[in-house]
Amino acid sequence: MIFVVAEHKDNKLRPITSELLVFGQRVARDFGEPITAVILGSSTGDLAGELKTRKIDRVLRAEHAGLAEYNPDTYVQVLQSILNKDKPFLVLMGHTTQGMDFAPRLAVRLCGPLISGCVEYEKQGERLILTRQIFNAKMNMKTLVRGEPPYFATASPGAFPGDEVESGGNAEVIVFPVQLTGTPKRKILNRVEAPKGQTDLSSAPIIVSGGRGLKQKENFNLIFELAEAIGGSVGASRPVVDAEWLPREYQVGSSGQTVSPRLYIAVGISGAIQHLVGMQTSRCIVAINKDPEAPIFKVAHYGIVDDLFKVVPALTKIFKDLRQA
């Protein structure tokens, strides 16, 4: 049995859930294992109904007032009792702040290998090979899990195409009787959205983003100048924000803003998966980077492989001239 742990928020399935189902459906096809989607929460009826239409075999609803909010203690406890009742082969979770918060605990508790941040999967003979990215997505590592199942994996957001999830199933929906024991060691107090300030990029039609390739804070002027000449907004990759060249509200990516502008120009951004998931649905993506192997070129439509310190001023000049014309 392949288990997919659904992730949801505000009574909606999160995009990672479809991506996990695609991952699960591919493994199911190759290994002939059935799929169970597990959804934990306090009111999961609608979402279970949605999961049921996917091409899977079973939906397990673990429903309890104590599961209204995500908590690693309750999640691990419930998942452990679910998995103990079955013969799990592979348990799939999101490589998200939620999935990564409980997956390592679950794997250790059930004494199974955990491959985190999977981007690819293949079957070799009878063995399961899971590929994860290392060295900030510059290299891939193929891993062979050891020992008897269950095996655990978290999937990188964006690595599996959620829109390719197969529908047409009529899975059985089963309510799993939840018993929670003990007091959780973690208590959720509140959640606040960080102020977006003047840089709500979610509706910007044109974004020019800069990355570590700019080398130092002062050079970010090149990005502001190009953005101004083209009439766009400014964004940044995580390393820029970590280095405090720009405040966090400029950050595009999984821990920053998700954007989908008409035109996205990535300057000196190598394109770690965390950045790509935040901008890869942009209509037109331009990458300017001197490293032809940079992952950003994988999602770009147009690329210039050259020194950004020469290309960007040239671009700015053309746009300025166009504006004056």
Binding site: N140, K142, L144, F297, I304, V305
Partner: peptide, 23 residues
Amino acid sequence: AYDVKEILVPERKSRVEVISGTP
């Protein structure tokens, strides 16, 4: 809990059109 089978440079399935010339 697992073995490393192989470490490799990822294949790029790219649709990018690289534009050449001087900057």
